[in-house]
């Protein structure tokens, strides 16, 4: 409901004439195609997510939010994954109070060499960071701007959305903090995601059973038990639990993603609780 009321306050003042209003509605409907008509959707590269999103990808020139717990690497990981894909369109900026994004790992979340298009910006204070983010969205050059921030209010998110529209630059807010509070906060973002680490998967090869079966003929006495134990202890491919909490014109959903270290891509392991995720997010679903 809070969302609805802010929508109204966002609407045109009484004095605005109908043409201007039509223009605004038109702009909302064109969202994702960019002002100059160029295709403005960036596929996430994760088939299930692209199929679920109403735009078949993430609309560029919009604000998107990723919510993540403090001390969880999945938030910055998912953000970097999206930023790497956006870097195809031009240089990308990562703004943060502490520049602790670590390039060797970022590099593994996208196409080789994508970090050459990445600029890291340190803005210690919240107001500085929001200023820098807006400034970067207004400037020619960047394809996407990511800002790490604990909390952004309605006013800030609306300003960022407007700034993102001016040049069709994609804005991503990485909100690091308690998930529940951030998920309830108002925002005009086109999408809001939740990113959390999940227990890693299993390596797809050399399952202990197969191993012992193959070896079985020669080494009947070989005990597979220690091998199975060692495998269980090892960390498998990284998994993230990704939730779409809000989506303009779409439904919330949850996915369990697994990273393929060979191809540096993400794939859905299995859909979780399809359609019933995020009680907080349902207010926007249409």
């Amino acid at each position: 409901m809070a969302q609805e009321s802010t929508r109204h306050s966002n609407a045109a003042p009484a004095g605005e004439d109908l043409d201007a209003l039509r223009e605004r509605i038109g702009a909302m409907e064109r969202m994702g195609t960019g002002r100059d008509g160029r295709a403005g959707v960036m596929p996430t590269g994760i088939a299930a997510i692209d199929a679920h999103l109403p735009w078949r990808g993430l609309p560029r020139g919009c604000l998107h939010e990723i919510i993540s717990r403090e001390g969880d690497g999945a938030g910055p990981g998912f953000a970097a994954y999206l930023l790497a894909r956006l870097a195809v369109f031009g240089p990308v900026l990562w703004l943060s109070p502490r520049p602790d994004a670590y390039a060797p790992a970022l590099e593994q979340l996208g196409r080789p060499g994508w970090t050459r298009r990445l600029l890291l910006v340190q803005a210690r204070r919240r107001d500085e960071l929001l200023w820098a983010m807006e400034e970067s969205l207004h400037a020619p050059g960047p394809a996407a701007v990511l800002g790490e921030i604990a909390a952004a209010d309605m006013v800030a998110s609306r300003r960022l959305q407007l700034a993102a529209e001016t040049r069709g630059t994609t804005a991503i807010l990485l909100r690091v903090g308690p998930i529940d509070a951030a998920a309830r906060a108002g925002s005009v973002a086109a999408t809001r995601w939740r990113a959390e680490s999940a227990p890693s998967g299993e390596w797809p090869f050399l399952a202990p059973a197969e191993f012992s079966a193959e070896d079985g003929g020669e080494n009947e006495s070989h005990d597979p038990q220690p091998i199975a134990w060692a495998r269980k202890d090892e960390i498998g491919p990284a998994r993230w639990s990704i939730g779409l909490l809000r989506c303009r014109g779409g439904r919330p959903n949850d996915w369990l993603l697994e990273k393929n270290d060979e191809t540096d891509s993400l794939a859905v392991v299995s859909p979780l609780r399809d359609g019933q995720a995020g009680e907080e997010g349902t207010g926007l679903a249409r």
């Binding site: 240089p91 520049p99 050459r116 990445l118 600029l119 890291l120 910006v121 340190q122 803005a123 210690r124 500085e128 200023w131 820098a132 400034e135 970067s136 400037a139 020619p140 050059g141 960047p142």
Partner: peptide
């Protein structure tokens, strides 16, 4: 990018923007 980087550098401090 130069105009943007200059603006950020001058407001946030020299060396705030890095590759």
């Amino acid at each position: 990018l130069a105009p943007l980087v200059d603006r950020l550098d001058n407001r946030l401090g020299r060396g705030a923007v890095v590759r």
